[in-house]
Design a protein around this nucleic acid. Structure first.
Length: 290
DNA sequence: ATCCAGGCTACAA
DNA sequence: TTGTAGCATGGA
């Protein structure tokens, strides 16, 4: 009996979707741009190559598994969510409107909760380039290899059970510095159930934050990033140094009220926008020396 | 060389 | 409660 495995799927897109912006805006760290402009990456235990042409998302399976490709991509890239209403809400403020014009092709991926949590623990006081390398090493050293048709090897994100039994010394090759002990604590509390990741799905953001912040090395910013990118809680508003800057200078009273339910989406447009245009945060007449 | 990066902990006042 | 030194690492 022959197993038919769909090697690729094509998904029609009914709204803007930029792979470059979505995969390079700091919400994920594991997608690699190929020389032809496509991206390769891992969703769960499936390695894929993706690209967009003619308002169609093409997804090719690289790994040798038979997990149905279409629902996998449909969910991961959040294709069932209509972002137009979110962008209309952002139009209520000129700078958010500019951010939408600049970064409106970003979609909030539906990453696995554990991967998002672990990734953003490692992200603290760190820059995106180094975070990417660090997570790459974590997966290469502690994930499961995914053999691919073309001879390449991808890796799963290491499950919590595997990291929970490690010592900081064992994690040394990852070169995560002081963050190693935080990752181990997160893994242990996840495995023990002290922090029940699955249960957070049905819990309001504030309560979910309190739960995640029991983990050493998880404060408000890491918790909100994890909940936004790993649990798709769109009302979370992570405040990193860039967002703090633009909040202080442009939104001293916070986002417009109507934006708050999707503040995480607005935040992500803004994050991508201000990193490319730091002058937005410049205080009018302010000087660096006072 | 000093500063900074998708911050948090531990401690002081 | 608010404020801040120290933290590991590496690129600018």
């Amino acid at each position: 009996m022959t197993t038919i495995v769909a090697g690729s799927v094509s998904l029609a897109l009914d709204q803007p979707f930029s792979l470059d912006d979505t995969l390079n805006c700091g919400q994920c760290f594991r997608w690699q741009r190929q020389s032809n402009g496509s991206y390769s990456g891992v969703i769960g235990s499936t390695a894929v190559n993706i690209f967009i042409t003619n308002k169609t998302l093409h997804c090719q399976r690289l790994s040798l598994d038979s997990i149905p490709l279409e629902p996998l991509c449909q969910e991961f890239f959040d294709l069932d969510t209509d972002y137009k209403p979110f962008q209309e809400l952002c139009r209520s403020h000129p700078v958010l409107s500019d951010a939408v014009d600049f970064a409106g092709g970003i979609r909030i991926l539906r990453q696995q909760p554990w991967e998002a949590l672990c990734s953003f623990i490692l992200s603290q006081n760190n820059n995106i380039k180094r975070i990417t390398g660090l997570i790459g090493r974590l997966c290469e050293y502690f994930g499961d290899p995914i053999l691919c048709e073309d001879g390449s090897v991808h890796y799963t994100f290491p499950p919590a059970q595997r990291l929970a039994v490690l010592t900081p010394e064992a994690l040394a090759p990852v070169r995560s510095g002081f963050r190693a002990k935080y990752v181990i604590d997160a893994a242990q509390k996840t495995v023990s159930g002290a922090v029940a990741l699955d249960a957070l799905r049905s819990v309001p953001a504030g309560e979910a934050m309190d739960s995640l912040m029991q983990i050493k090395g998880v404060g408000p910013k890491v918790a909100q990033c994890a909940l936004l990118f790993g649990w798709h809680k769109l009302d979370c508003l992570p405040r990193d140094v860039w967002i703090k800057r633009v909040m202080d200078s442009v939104f001293p009273d916070g986002f417009p009220e109507q934006v708050l339910p999707i503040a995480g989406v607005a935040q992500q447009y803004l994050f991508h926008y201000v990193r490319a245009h730091p002058e937005i945060c410049a205080k009018p007449g302010g000087s660096l020396s006072d």
